[in-house]
Design a protein around this nucleic acid. Structure first.
Lengths: 226, 226, 226, 226
DNA sequence: GATGAATGAGATTTCATTCAT
DNA sequence: GATGAATGAAATCTCATTCAT
């Protein structure tokens, strides 16, 4: 009923009991600590996503990570800071990967489409999509999280979108000039998909890719060839 | 720090002590009970929206409603059922009002615009908007709530949108035929606004009405005159 | 799941609504009150027996008796006194009936057998048997109840038994003279039956009458004819 | 008014602070936990006996055991399971000791007398006697407890008694053959004593040993020499 | 007299955090 | 560093008792 240790955690445990006399030199203390930390972070992410902040028990995180409850406090000050830090830890590498912009060759539509598809594939249908929902859910009670997310993700994202839109307008690919004022419109369907998946998928599955294409058709005009 | 009794609750209290300065002559027991129930519902809604389900304390709801803790249990079985019932109680009248369709005269765009503006005015910038965010936040842990919301709001809304879109396509107002498959696109910006308001408003205010107009321009083509 | 109003209670209720204009003169206020009181007593007895003192809810008693919770407080000071008074109210008439001794004609054995059979029939297999178990259960926490029960039932019972035993010894029906010091032995199997019924009947039914006969055979010597 | 920590608990506490004046050198964590568990069990037993299940407060158990309330939940799932487990924990060792049968040398009467005296000494006048009363009191609301008690104690006890009675009949020590059908009669006075002690001792003390001897005289015939 | 909505003290249970080992 | 038993504050929920109608 409650979460069980993952295979990784189990492995770590048996390893801890099996290799009694430290024959594994590579796995020194620091490395072990880092491993544990990573396990805690992953476990915490899963639990927070599944239950929300308040309903998540540190006990469950510890069990899932395969560590003792006290160990969590060696890595995080308390539950709140763990949550806030967690969001940062998960978001930062994603943002970093996305900011290595691929050079804007080809049409703007192609660019947007590739970008959005990647996003859908890598975010919408993964744990990270749920993280977005988690932030929406807990944001009001964690201004620090909302602020961080705004600064690191939303602001940059909006900026990037706007640049793309303006490029599209300049090149004549986009007719609706007002779009530059509201780049949010560009990503709206993506957010909708993320939310839809976690709330309504069992009632009516949603083909996010197809929806996205229709949306892009609206913006860029319908494609002659698909 | 914790919630205080609202003016309404205070009023009810002083009134109870004998001062009947308004035109309600005989506040019988049933009426009193109904009043209290309403106070509890309103208080609970505020608290749940502000803190989420798990972090809301019944103590605070009671205090805010101006009743004793035990009184809540005269009206609701437990915290969970209170939450679920609450969502129903708030949503039902909204849905009922919206289903009294105004006759579809004029252009589809006008219809959509009026409808969406009303929605933005009545939902997005009110407590009800936060309720939507609350449902997004708690839905995964309250399948009954998600189900209810899907059945009562989403399904009907999607159906209504689709009908409008098809009408628009038939009349030649909407060019993008794929839109009929994804009426979600039509409301996506509205949802975005709701979420934006509660998370990012202090960073960057969003003119939801203007964004909506741009979005409708995308769908219906730009207006000649504004 | 919880107790429902008995037929009597239902009758009283419908009667209360049905005979609106007091056409029933016999059922005046005082009579009504007495009726209610009786209903409360019966309901309370059932509930206390089924759940014990602490686990019994006044709510359930009221429901079962078909009265409002407040009404109970018109008849009893509080839950504790209700319990204590209840035991008295139920035991007194039983004791009164038993003290109208039938004249001691015939053999002592016959007397004891008739008496014990009557007791088994009227107490052991009825609600009153459970009352004995209830007193055993709650006695330590209700010294007043234990005292009353000792004074009214046990002491008299022991006295009566002793008189019978001495008569039996004098007449040569009973050989074991020590029995007069311990009349408890005479009733021990009856108490055993009462307890056995409520705890172990579903595991192994016990023929109390047969057991009693064997016990009397031990005391009076085996009968030549049965 | 409420229960106070026992001497044992107090001892454990002071010991915890460093004074180790006894021969237990290294009180490791597991041993400590076991100690606490034992303290909880003992405290709970006392409280349940004194007040019955429903009226016993976990707070008082904790105080008496000298632990925090939460600690109880490290050992028991909840109040109900604690009660059920408790009965098992106390009864099992008693049963185990009794099943190490002393070899049936000597007369059956001697055997029964030794056995019953032992029982009276070890059960009737100790906490364990009250446990029997507790089981009688709570049995109907704890079928699991009644079942366990029947299986482990009553059934075996009845079986053992029956074997003895049949031996007695075969050897000509017992005349009343019907007794083999109702071994309950053999133990009835013992149960009576247990109940009498806890309810009526202050009104009229009962010499259980003497009563037992009279009872055995009834069954085995009077002794020539005492 | 009768009602039953309201109360609030008090019970059980949970869980973040600490700390001796 | 790591552990996990222990803590106790705080949460949910119950229910005997009161009292305005």
């Amino acid at each position: 009923m409650t979460s069980k240790p993952t295979k990784a955690a189990a492995a770590r445990k048996s390893e801890a009991k099996g290799s009694a006399q430290d024959e594994v030199p590579a796995s020194n203390r620091a490395a072990r600590a880092a491993e544990r930390r990573a396990a805690i972070i992953e476990a915490a992410l899963e639990e927070f996503i599944a239950r929300g902040f308040a309903a998540t028990r540190l006990d469950d995180i510890a069990k899932r990570a395969g560590v003792a409850k006290g160990t969590i406090y060696l890595h995080f000050k308390d539950k709140e800071s763990m949550f806030e830090e967690l969001v940062r830890l998960v978001i930062v590498p994603v943002v970093e990967r996305l900011t290595k912009l691929p050079p804007p060759t080809g049409s703007v539509r192609d660019l947007v489409e590739v970008f959005a598809s990647t996003f859908l594939r890598e975010v919408a249908n993964t744990r990270r999509g749920d993280l977005v929902r988690l932030i929406v859910a807990e944001g009001p009670r964690f201004p620090a999280v909302a602020d961080f997310y705004y600064r690191e993700v939303v602001q940059r994202g909006i900026g990037g979108m706007r640049a793309l839109i303006e490029l599209g307008i300049a090149r004549g690919e986009i007719r609706e000039k007002g779009l530059a004022r509201f780049p949010q419109i560009l990503v709206a369907p993506v957010l909708i998909s993320v939310i839809w998946q976690s709330l309504f998928e069992r009632h009516a599955p949603l083909d996010a890719q197809a929806m996205l294409r229709v949306h892009l058709d609206l913006i860029f005009g319908e494609r002659r060839t698909t």
